[in-house]
Simulated scan of single mutants.
Amino acid sequence: MYDFAPDSDLSPTERYRQLADAADALTAGEADGVANMANVAALMWEFLPALNWAGFYRMVDGELVLGPFAGRPACIRIPLGRGVCGRAAQTGETQVVEDVHAFPGHIACDAASRAELVVPVVRDGAVIAVIDLDSPQRARFGAEDAAGVEQLARVLANRI
């Protein structure tokens, strides 16, 4: 049995370090990328407070396609450049959005979402997926969150 639940009083930096360590432990030696994404989506849901969606979109034939996640049903396909996920995939840059309703072209899969963090997963210079976190809390994500999820993306780059 796996029990990776973090302490509730961790600093954000320590919480993300423990999340990356747990993801590393769960995905090490497992070749199935979907299984690895599923476990990491569950870990993000467990580790990160104030989320209403945590998961992956995979790059498939030039567009993002829904991958494993925790949360409400989501949009299945996202064109490059569209919405927060599409912009992150197109630019290869992390997107931290304090208020998704102010983001031009935001795709509203869940009307309760207020803030979003999207981090590209890059392998051999190409975006292969994005990690997407949504929150019902405006301005939920900041620089520490971005750095923590970027570290997680580096751990997963050769495992998904």
Score class of each variant (00 low, 15 high):
69 F>Y: 13
102 A>V: 05
92 G>Q: 03
122 V>F: 02
54 A>R: 07
52 N>E: 07
136 P>A: 14
101 H>A: 09
133 L>T: 11
39 N>M: 14
31 A>K: 13
45 W>N: 15
132 D>V: 09
125 G>S: 04
54 A>I: 10
139 A>I: 11
108 A>R: 10
30 E>M: 12
55 G>D: 03
111 A>D: 12
84 V>D: 06
43 L>E: 00
64 L>T: 12
74 A>P: 01
36 N>A: 10
41 A>F: 06
138 R>N: 09
129 A>H: 00
66 L>C: 04
86 G>S: 10
114 R>N: 11
109 C>S: 11
76 I>V: 15
132 D>A: 10
30 E>V: 15
77 R>G: 09
122 V>Y: 01
127 V>K: 01
124 D>I: 09
123 R>P: 06
120 P>Y: 05
124 D>V: 08
30 E>Q: 13
128 I>C: 00
105 G>C: 03
82 R>T: 11
102 A>N: 08
130 V>S: 01
61 D>F: 07
107 I>K: 03
44 M>C: 15
54 A>L: 09
39 N>H: 13
89 A>F: 05
82 R>Y: 09
47 F>K: 13
99 D>C: 08
31 A>M: 13
69 F>W: 03
74 A>L: 11
64 L>V: 14
100 V>L: 08
129 A>E: 00
66 L>R: 11
44 M>I: 15
110 D>N: 12
75 C>G: 07
72 R>D: 13
92 G>C: 04
73 P>L: 14
66 L>G: 05
96 V>H: 00
96 V>S: 03
91 T>V: 11
127 V>I: 07
107 I>E: 02
47 F>N: 10
55 G>E: 04
72 R>N: 13
130 V>L: 03
42 A>H: 11
97 V>E: 01
109 C>Y: 04
55 G>C: 04
49 P>I: 10
142 G>V: 03
34 V>I: 11
80 L>K: 09
34 V>D: 12
96 V>K: 02
52 N>D: 14
140 R>S: 12
31 A>H: 12
92 G>R: 02
99 D>N: 14
59 M>N: 01
31 A>N: 12
109 C>G: 11
122 V>W: 01
48 L>M: 14
36 N>Y: 09
103 F>S: 02
124 D>N: 13
41 A>P: 01
48 L>D: 11
42 A>G: 14
104 P>L: 05
58 R>I: 05
103 F>Y: 12
109 C>L: 05
74 A>Y: 06
71 G>Y: 00
97 V>P: 04
43 L>D: 00
98 E>I: 03
29 G>H: 07
100 V>P: 03
124 D>P: 07
87 R>K: 15
122 V>C: 01
116 E>D: 08
132 D>P: 04
136 P>D: 14
94 T>R: 02
128 I>P: 00
103 F>P: 00
122 V>A: 02
129 A>P: 00
140 R>H: 11
